[in-house]
Amino acid sequence: MNYTDGQLEQKSLKLRRSVVKWIKHAGAGHTGGSLSCIDILNVLYNRILNVSPENFTSPDRDRYVQSKGHAVEALFVVLADAGFFDESDLETLCCYQSHYVGHPTRKVNGVEQNTGGLGHGLPICVGTALAGKMDAKDYRVYTLLGDGELAEGSNWEAAMSAAHYKLDNLTAVIDCNTLQIAGRTADVMNSEPLVEKWEAFGWAVRRIDGHDIAALTEALRDPLEAGKPSMVIADTVKGRGVSFMEDVGKWHHGVPNDEEFAKAMEGFDMQLAAKEGALS
């Protein structure tokens, strides 16, 4: 289906509402970092990736590996929306014997790789992109990293190899929400200046507003530069869409109480009403 930017913005609101709903239902989850990356996943799954429940076993499909695995609730609601499974499956999120647990596993339809230990997605994607080059395949490979996650040395080992092998079929996105568990990334372990670092490692880099559907579409569609891996630094707001969670560190893995939950749902209803008004 071809969505307009406005329709995708509307979808992002619904997806965010689902994220909060399922985290409340499960009584656990990574709220802030799931809300910050929804627009990125929405654009990837609804505009960019050649991947669907029908072609998921095809060797020619595009790949998305979520390196920041803790934002699994974002991935789950987007996969459900894309038809990989019924959203009501998430009734069992985090329950005994459910495949829907707090990090992505391949037991869930649509999940490419088990992630959750940070710093694994990029190396895996380098391998998959390299295989694509070896076999002259057209598929593209995408991964999503957290800004705190960049402290893992494995990312920089992979960064070097991606440039070395000229993997222009690989795009990495940083969900740059400036927060990690212990506080501001700049205070915990500063990862900036990101543009200069990735350029120095041989990547083509673009820094954009990570909530801007048009900018995301443009940055994610094609390689930024032939012969180089692409890095999209997406500036985002942790907890995006819930007023009292936005840019507040404690919502990294907070679950809203009943009152907070009601307030969050009310906020989404208002945002959705405004969006529907604008679209009609």
């Binding site: 656990a28 647990v101 990090h103 596993t105 088990n114 959750g116």
Partner: peptide, 9 residues
């Protein structure tokens, strides 16, 4: 201890 966070944890 991390229970439902799964095998990575």
């Amino acid at each position: 201890s991390y229970g439902a966070l799964g095998t990575t944890h």
